[in-house]
């Protein structure tokens, strides 16, 4: 038979042990919760900084575009109209020989025509009317034809996209992505062959070229404004994109799950 004090001290030891374990568990709980919450906070901060970057890229793109439009307007329209106004002033003042005046009028007519053509081209570059009127398929076909007219067989298009598979806003995003990709391939990748495939069931886009690839470009390792622009459009579409590139092997870009964003 145990002595009373033995039992009491045994119970006390067990009690202290239990208390110790319980406190350790509580401390463990609070420490791990702190860790988990910190990790989540970090994740949220990363997301916020990513969004900020996107926003910055959007603003930069906008500014760049404005600059380009301003330059286009200045070079192609303002300077030409200046000549027109100058010639018209000379004609108004009178005292010009008929032959000279006829020459001047011909110049005015020719400049007006080129200016008209330029303004049409600028407007067309900003928003292709064919996209609004006839949809994505026609717009991409037109884009392909435009490039193929200059370089025979540059772009191979396979398109079984059915009209209105995407709404007009989404079509604009996809079109801009294609535009940006082709621009990049020609400007940075020096590609001589591009293949674009557009399907509507499910809506997806795949793109590849035979250029120098991503790692060989001047902006190696750092996504440029154009790529960021594509990224934010993909995010707006709610789709999934995959970008592969090998040095000397061109690029491959795919865009899927477009309907998930709706």
């Amino acid at each position: 038979m145990f002595e009373n004090t033995d039992i009491i001290s045994l119970i006390l030891i067990a009690l202290s042990f239990l208390l110790l374990m319980a406190s350790a568990l509580v401390i463990f709980f609070f420490l791990s919760r702190k860790k988990v919450i910190n990790a989540e906070l970090e994740k949220a901060n990363m997301e916020i900084s990513f969004q900020k970057e996107m926003l910055q890229a959007t603003i930069l793109t906008q500014e760049k575009e404005r600059k380009r439009i301003a330059q286009d307007l200045h070079d192609a329209i303002s300077s030409k109209l200046n000549i027109v106004s100058l010639n018209t002033n000379v004609l108004l003042e009178g005292g010009v020989e008929e032959e000279q005046s006829n020459e001047m009028l011909a110049t005015i007519l020719q400049i007006s025509n080129t200016t008209l053509e330029s303004s049409r081209r600028i407007a067309h570059d900003l928003l292709p009317p064919v996209l609004q009127k006839f949809g994505l398929k026609a717009a991409v076909e037109e884009l392909t034809n435009d490039y193929n007219r200059a370089h025979e067989g540059l772009i191979q298009l396979s398109c079984d996209y059915e009209p209105e598979s995407l709404d007009s806003k989404e079509e604009l995003h996809v079109f801009r992505i294609v535009q940006e990709l082709v621009n990049n391939s020609l400007k940075h990748g020096a590609a001589t062959g591009i293949s674009i495939s557009l399907t509507s069931n499910p809506p997806s886009l795949s793109y590849s070229d035979n250029g120098v690839g991503f790692e060989n470009t001047a902006s190696a390792g750092k996504p440029g404004l154009g790529m960021k622009n594509i990224e934010s459009r993909v995010a707006l579409l709610g789709g999934q994109s995959n970008f592969e590139s090998e040095a000397g092997n061109g690029i491959r870009f795919t865009l899927n799950n477009l309907r998930n964003g709706n």
Binding site: N4, I7, L12, L15, L19, A22, V26
Partner: peptide, 29 residues
């Protein structure tokens, strides 16, 4: 709840020892 229940479970479980233990010992618990 966690700490109190863990500690008091041992104390209550040894409750019937009050007939065996000295009054003082049990009072301590």
């Amino acid at each position: 709840v966690f700490i109190y229940l863990i500690c008091s479970t041992l104390i209550f479980a040894s409750g019937n020892l009050q007939y065996e233990l000295s009054q003082q010992g049990y009072l301590l618990l």
